[in-house]
Design a protein around this nucleic acid. Sequence first.
DNA 1: ACTTTGGATATTGTATACAAAAATAATCAG
DNA 2: CTGATTATTTTTGTATACAATATCCAAAGT
Lengths: 220, 220
Amino acid sequence: MVVEYKTRTQVVVEAIREKILTGAIKAGEPLRQAALADELKVSRIPVREALLQLEAEGLVEFEAHKGATATKLSAEQVTELFELRALLECELLRMAIPRLTEAELAQSEQLLQQMSEAYQAADTSGSWSELNSRFHMSLYRAANRPLTYEMVQNLNSNSDRYIRVHLMLAGGVKKAGPEHENLLQLVRQKKADAACQLLKQHILGAAAEIKLLVTKLDGG
Amino acid sequence: MVVEYKTRTQVVVEAIREKILTGAIKAGEPLRQAALADELKVSRIPVREALLQLEAEGLVEFEAHKGATATKLSAEQVTELFELRALLECELLRMAIPRLTEAELAQSEQLLQQMSEAYQAADTSGSWSELNSRFHMSLYRAANRPLTYEMVQNLNSNSDRYIRVHLMLAGGVKKAGPEHENLLQLVRQKKADAACQLLKQHILGAAAEIKLLVTKLDGG
DNA sequence: ACTTTGGATATTGTATACAAAAATAATCAG
DNA sequence: CTGATTATTTTTGTATACAATATCCAAAGT
């Protein structure tokens, strides 16, 4: 196990990312460098560097001389985000299926178990979402596509924010349970086409619900 | 027309990007902050910020306390890069085709014209490559998919580097001419399936040639 | 009241200075 | 001479200080 020495910038990246994902910082909200620096007990330099990295992740938007804001996606952009996920994740899943070992599948299954527990414990905001991402990603690692994998990870971060804020309240989480289990079963049986179709449906279904909620909020 | 005031960081980003794309900085080469700052007559701060942005673009790799290097892709990664492009660009093209206006198509055609001129003038290193990217992107703008569009733009930057360094020497450029014209024709005729297939073939064909060259260089 | 203009204030961008880590050179034991 | 170990140097990471830009607000003119 590598000890992974962390630079201040990295710590700040994680802190701000967490704030955005949990909704502590809302979409569109300005991110003042001085305030963040003060709060995190660092100078503005690591804050600026962190904001730049988060911009690359799509969580933050930077405008010269005007500062950064938490990215606010329009309904169309949310749609695009989820459709991109559907496209890329299906591709990854298709490539992963023939290579997934039983050990890896067992891990995915364990994540499902944990998600179910988190759901029972009504801990739907934090852990469930985290586990959800990890479950999805656990199916893709075997695809051996580092570039695509990283992209999908970013897209997941982004959509996660919307899942947490919006879908929790609706019945989205309840529906996800059986869908995940069916998906895992199809993957186990190496039924690539069926699995991909279900995955696509799973992602786009969530997208549709979230889009509704987003447009409702923007409109009223 | 917006005057677009440029910050030093942005200038440095463009300068370093250009150096990497043209091969002035070779893959794997370390990028010393002080040296770059000195050369570009700025302090290390904008250099660092530029390097971070370029890391997000995939052109640079950053390691804590060790510095940045120009990204060096393995043969597998080059393959993945081009396959990703094929996937995403086809998606964009398919969405763009029904929306492309004659005015936009005329612009694309003009780019082809310019490419042909650049080719005649044996200016294959700089302008041709630049025009090649612009031609591809000109077909996708109408898709109205800003997120995907930006991703593809990055991927293009990355693959461009390999195209410039390697394919120039081989016959890749010569082949591209007719392929581009055929593609544009199919797009004009709104033959989405055929156009996408040709595009895919166009990208993957280039990938195959480049992969050969990359493995050859790495091996010997 | 409404716009305009000038300046105070806040905020970002960049240079400089210093601290921390890594890479390199020098010393010394065997 | 070799290899380990400790200085020395180089390079990166971060804080502080200052410059440039944008934002806000009050006063003046219409």
